[in-house]
């Protein structure tokens, strides 16, 4: 197990490097630059700006300087777009926000999704099953950029119960709508996966044995069936995490939460190279870590798996 983790971490290093090189190449190929505007800057002003941010250096030098700064000093450089802040400031600002509503969305999605899936599996081929499947497929196909404005319309304008956006340091009123909008599609996926793997487990020999012993259903489910049925759900959580981060773009646009997604898209549009790189690397690292954690959990739950 220890060796496995080490090996995975060893792969992580070239992965991050490839990520950096790839994003750098994309950005250098990009037309436009961070200091273009409707009103082209006089060449001298532009030259001053480029010198200030080191953009007048050759590409390979910029890239190697960047890598050295990141590795040795954990310094991602200044943002081009927000002149009084560094990339670290931007990330420290946006990431906790994304993480907060992402975390709650996750909790909601897992709890509701698993419950729906389990109910559907137990009551297989009854109306409960059909309703649960209907809800989960419906939730999966309704884009969250349609859901978000509907939520605001209903809960803010018509009912007046909740604020239509903002963050205010993450007070609960501001959390609810983003969490609903973000969690539904995961919830749906989790429900579908849970249902099918639960069905499979319920047909397995050891469950039949347990039934034969006359154990009550809820004990069979909680004590025996749930753990093995969770394996496929676990492996879904890795990709779901990445989807959560990208999905935060929609949440940030509609609820003005100020998370990382909005920073990323804005930076891509305005060629804020430094912020793009910072966020890409951050998400890359987190993806690797998250997948690793999932794999370790997997091994822990399923004793058959040996690394």
């Amino acid at each position: 197990m220890f060796n496995f983790v080490l090996k995975r971490l060893a792969i992580a290093i070239p992965t991050i490097l490839i990520l950096i090189v790839l994003s750098f190449m994309l950005m250098f190929a990009a037309p436009g630059g961070p200091f273009n505007s409707e009103r082209p800057l006089p060449p001298q002003v532009l030259a001053n700006l480029e010198a200030r941010y080191g953009l007048d250096q050759p590409y390979w030098k910029q890239m190697s300087d960047y890598v050295v700064n990141v590795v040795t000093r954990f310094d991602f450089g200044p943002s081009f777009q927000y002149r009084d802040r560094t990339v670290t400031d931007v990330i420290m600002q946006g990431f906790p926000v994304t993480l907060t509503y992402g975390f709650w969305s996750f909790v909601v999605a897992v709890i509701v999704g698993v419950s729906l899936g389990v109910v559907a599996a137990i009551k297989h081929n009854t109306w409960l099953d059909y309703v649960a499947v209907g809800i989960s497929v419906g939730a999966q196909v309704l884009p969250n950029f349609v859901m978000a404005p509907i939520l605001v319309l209903v809960f803010t304008l018509w009912l007046g119960w909740l604020p239509g956006g903002g963050w205010q340091g993450g007070q609960w009123q501001y959390l609810i709508l983003p969490v609903i909008a973000l969690s539904t599609s995961y919830m749906a996926s989790i429900a579908r996966i849970t249902r099918s793997s639960m069905l499979e487990v319920l047909n397995a020999g050891f469950i039949r044995t347990a039934r034969a012993k006359g154990l009550p259903t809820w004990r069979i489910i909680l004590g025996h069936a749930l753990k093995p049925a969770m394996l496929p759900v676990l492996s879904y959580l890795g990709p779901a995490f990445v989807l959560m981060i990208t999905g935060s773009v929609v949440i940030d646009v509609y609820f003005s939460t100020g998370g990382i997604g909005q920073f990323f898209v804005n930076s891509a549009f305005s060629r804020d190279y430094a912020v793009i790189m910072g966020i890409t690397i951050l998400v890359g690292v987190l993806t690797i870590l998250f997948n690793l954690v999932v794999d370790v959990l997997y091994a822990w739950i399923d004793p058959k798996i040996r690394y």
């Binding site: 792969i11 992965t15 990323f264 690797i288």
Partner: peptide
């Protein structure tokens, strides 16, 4: 397969957004 492992760790939606914005 190592290459696949590496590529899997790349946040591709971000790369896609970058590609569309850029090209």
């Amino acid at each position: 397969m190592r290459i696949v492992d590496i590529l899997m760790a790349i946040p591709f939606m971000f790369v896609l957004i970058l590609m569309l914005v850029i090209f």
